[in-house]
Design a protein around this nucleic acid. Sequence first.
DNA 1: CGTTTTTGTGCAATCGATTGTACAAGATTT
DNA 2: AAATCTTGTACAATCGATTGCACAAAAACG
Lengths: 341, 341
Amino acid sequence: MKKQHVTIHDIARELNISASTVSRALHNHPRISRATREAVQQLALKYNYQPNVMASSLRKGRSKTVGVIVPRINRNFFANVIGGMEEVLTSAGYHMIICQTLEKVNHEMFALRTLVNARVDAIIMSISMETKDHEHLRILVDKGIRMFFFDRICEEIRAGSVAIDDRLGAYQSVRHLLDQGYRNIVHVAGAGHINIYRARKQGYLEALREAGIPDRDSWIIEESLIPEGGKAAFEIGMKLAPRPDAYFCAGDYAALGILQAARNRGLKVPDDLGITGFANEPFTEFTEPSMTTVDQRAGEMGVMVADMFLKDVDQSDGANPVERIMLKPELIIRNSSMLNK
Amino acid sequence: MKKQHVTIHDIARELNISASTVSRALHNHPRISRATREAVQQLALKYNYQPNVMASSLRKGRSKTVGVIVPRINRNFFANVIGGMEEVLTSAGYHMIICQTLEKVNHEMFALRTLVNARVDAIIMSISMETKDHEHLRILVDKGIRMFFFDRICEEIRAGSVAIDDRLGAYQSVRHLLDQGYRNIVHVAGAGHINIYRARKQGYLEALREAGIPDRDSWIIEESLIPEGGKAAFEIGMKLAPRPDAYFCAGDYAALGILQAARNRGLKVPDDLGITGFANEPFTEFTEPSMTTVDQRAGEMGVMVADMFLKDVDQSDGANPVERIMLKPELIIRNSSMLNK
DNA sequence: CGTTTTTGTGCAATCGATTGTACAAGATTT
DNA sequence: AAATCTTGTACAATCGATTGCACAAAAACG
């Protein structure tokens, strides 16, 4: 249990020079003589000197840390985004502090305060379901805190963002169902105040209109996107006329609920009923029949938003043109929607 | 874009007192008069003063941060553990810095160095697959760094840990298969140098022996625990005599591979073949038939290891009796192993 | 009333790294 | 040889919070 860490002062003392010289030598300052520089660097190596991040952060006012806020860490999508960010940020010398909101706006505010306290160099977040008002976000941006959004972005705030083109993903899904010959397509939708669910609804409507199929409000069923929500939507759908022959769900878990409900009713998928989900959750590959869905390219999204941040700090000439990237989603066609064999 | 943060000096100036008095007032130091204390606290509230964590960390030598190292953030199990830790640590005022090793030992060493640099108050980790040697861990523990393991623990290091009783989980699974009437049970095993896979094998052997069934080495097939590994194991199993009637897999993805391979061969699960997995991955609920597996109580594990850390820092009287907790796993019986209906 | 104790506050050092400025010695220019 | 420039290093302040020590004023005591 020796002294825990070597400091520049330890090195300075041993070489009979000042700490400032050591610091400069370690940073290859041009004014430091070659002899001194090499002596310092050798000794640093010998003692395995590691700069105290807190001290240098305090002095420089930058913490080399990025705060990440997600609704839930253990949701497949978010875990993948975080995985992507981690790879980029770590290799650029940044840490990540991670907070989850559990979809609660007060958790979100708490997390924001925590991260601002920790003096993170940026906050990268996906807003919670409950977040309808964005005043707490605006305050931070106005204060000059670097902020980036991914997936669930807040359009009203001027901030960089990466998201997938949900509208396009939905459009492609519905278009695919139409191509397969399905005609009476119900949309199981998510909460309307979240941009991604609004966009998915738009894509659904667009595909129908393009095909000349009238859209009706009663065919858009807003439900919680969990298996139970899917089952509820299925029951509602059973009462519609004409009888729906396909369900486009804004989430995979809801699609799974539809699948289970259909099975219970003796309906065959995909013959009697086509089903598509959204998110490419791992289980969709393994359901019977396997589920058609839309991949959100989570890992890439994490990489891109992290890169966006790095680019921004690098230039940091103040004039940051806010970039909003939209990734193209990938329609993954599986058996739950393959009418033609 | 005003001045970003209020400091104790700002408050001190406004009240014509010294910064040290402000600091003491904010910490309810008994020597500070009531009047001063209240004035300070009011002003702090008014300006929404938030202490600079880096400054206080630097001074106090504690960062209020915990480093977490996992093989992959986006693996369901680890994401759930992290989720559990997050809830506990955040409400105790700690941050988490998260690193992933991607199962590489050099990534692991890099992560350790990074976290030590960041002066984390503890490191909570699950070792990578590649980690066979533990010298790099011992060095840190000897240096006095607080270390805790979960799931994949390193027994040779004296450190607190939380894991599930893998041996028991395996024993229960195999016992269940035997109770169902299966007799010729293959074990698809994981890498033998990882404690959890060794323990699962032990449980398998124990259940067989207890039932008076001879165990043979050729019935233990060590494979990568992915669907392809399962398929490979299935092919090997097809050549055994007598023909296996059940597979106990050390991982769910391998079990899935067996399920798919069996289906391709026209074998009916569970009638012709019983299958059980390990980990309770979300998809196991949704396969056809649904998969029997063992739940590892990931969230609880995260909560417990975080609590263990908090208890340790709180007392910190040096005399820390190393605690090694073993959680009881939960056998989740589903259709892939239900011979009796 | 003089002495001791308690109370309330400020000073200054500290944590470790960084950086503007000063300054001496050596090199170059005129 | 004097003037100027370059090179190499040290000093001291700084980032913001914390804390041991000092000390004055007030209170308690004999």
